[in-house]
Design a binder for these strands. Structure first.
Lengths: 120, 120
DNA sequence: GCTATACTTCGTTACGTGACGAATTAAGGA
DNA sequence: TCCTTAATTCGTCACGTAACGAAGTATAGC
């Protein structure tokens, strides 16, 4: 029960649902996610740690970067079911479409260029 | 998106998830649900109105009683998918099993007898 | 080692939400 | 008509949570 509630709460935040949708297109580092969402890095980091703790996403470290991706086929069936539900419910949603557009822009940028935000 | 978040939030409360599980056994009036959960009628009423507003449950009025049931086949596909997800995730859960036991006791009682609570 | 930088953790603030009892509404029955 | 009662609505309180910036951690490059 506890696991279910944790996953359901993780999914029921709009920002996290958006992240799950555009993360379906491929793995991203935190600074790319920050750029798509337009939120503070600390906020995004918190969201990613919540998603990772539930098992909905996984990550790999590469130097200073941390790349997040959706949980793979080895994840528990009901994690998979949750991801499928989110996907079914949200594909075609205007918010998700706009995020997809934004993601394309972000992917064109050099990863290094993204980090100018930290120089402020 | 908004609909999805509303439904996900509705489902991500433990009390409401429990209600959805034992409501699968058949329709119940509010006072029966109150008796299974052991919560205040006002609290249960609020939960039911949240569930009804999302479309996860429906109700019919019969005199002073209001009978709630799970959404039927005519509900939107992704409401159905949500209910299936909850069911898959929670069937066999100890909390749900205990509620099922409690429900059996409640169903043995006369509906009138349940309402003694209001006389206190 | 030092600096820069990608990310996380911490502390604060504002807002959302679940619990309850009291008051209100609606429907039977005397 | 008045009373009882099933259920809801309202007001309040405590707690959870999402946002941010500041501070801390870890890794790459000089």
């Amino acid at each position: 029960m506890k696991d279910f509630i944790t996953i359901a709460k993780a999914v029921s935040d709009e920002t996290r649902a958006r992240i799950l949708m555009f993360l379906g297109k491929g793995e991203l580092c935190v600074c790319q996610i920050v750029d798509v969402l337009g939120l503070a890095p600390s906020t995004v980091s918190k969201h990613m740690s919540i998603l990772a703790q539930t098992g909905l996403v996984e990550f790999r470290k590469d130097g200073r970067w941390r790349y997040y991706r959706l949980a793979g086929p080895e994840a528990s069936p009901f994690i998979r079911q949750a991801l499928e539900w989110v996907n079914t419910a949200l594909e075609g949603s205007p918010v998700v479409q706009e995020d997809t557009r934004q993601l394309k822009k972000v992917l064109k940028k050099d990863v290094k260029a993204l980090c100018e935000r930290y120089k402020c």
